[in-house]
Design a protein around this nucleic acid. Sequence first.
DNA 1: TATTGTTATACTCTATAACTATA
DNA 2: TATAGTTATAGAGTATAACAATA
Lengths: 158, 158
Amino acid sequence: MKFTPVRLVEEGMADPLSGSICYELRRASVPVMAAMSAEFGQWNLKTSEAYLLRFIAANQGCTQSAVARALGSKPANLVPLIARLERDGLLERMPGEGRAVALSITDRGMTMLGNIEAGFQRLEGRLGAGLTADQKQAMIDALRTICRAACHYDSREP
Amino acid sequence: MKFTPVRLVEEGMADPLSGSICYELRRASVPVMAAMSAEFGQWNLKTSEAYLLRFIAANQGCTQSAVARALGSKPANLVPLIARLERDGLLERMPGEGRAVALSITDRGMTMLGNIEAGFQRLEGRLGAGLTADQKQAMIDALRTICRAACHYDSREP
DNA sequence: TATTGTTATACTCTATAACTATA
DNA sequence: TATAGTTATAGAGTATAACAATA
């Protein structure tokens, strides 16, 4: 990870993008996602796999489609992630109702979960280090408001 | 764009990810990026191309590497974007100092810029509709604080 | 028929390594 | 040698369409 640590835009250059929700969101997302990759990459996990394990651990026996709905992913995209985690012995797939498959963490997965939880905690602590609890909460509330608006966005509206 | 408009996580499911900076940032980013795609896709532009045109228009004659530094992109990734915009007659590449290339918007690019500016304005207005000016500014400040922390993130630190 | 899961595929964004060209 | 730009390539994340299996 080699990001320019300062806010950029050389002397005398205009910065028409700065200050807009879209741009600032992207600017923050990139290094944050990179930090997550670095954190979970230590355990040879992708960020999405870490999310998945953590969610399934908290919802043992949930189905794949429930996970997709909860995480806002497409079921098709979970397939390779789950396959990989199962192959590595971190989670199990058991037959559920109908075609459904119940997902659960193995003992080995629980050990890994310890690393993941610690990773999330480190990330949370360091990324939020410059914010008060109130500032952080206000930001999260704002992000959710924006998320909701973006989910309803229709570019054809007047 | 078909996103679940509500906050998800079915009845009785735990949501261990919610409330964390990383996760909320990702959750908001995805639909926001999709909204941008939808907005600029009307003009057959990618989001990154819209960023690029807008920045160059505000900094006529800037070099490719200056753009890369300002936008936080890798020079290599700008190549196909710039090539495409030049091919479509939206921007021009003129020889600059040394190997440098000076980028500028063409007349046709300026016309397109009108669409882009309008698009950014629509996005900004609609995505930020639920926030007061203060809330929005506080969120942007928080995002920059987090961005800075993430840029310095070192997963090997104790 | 509706839901669940899978396959195949494509596109965007980001990243790195290795290269060329110019001062 | 340092800076600017390019090529090639890889990987993560997302999306859709088309399909199979089960109630």
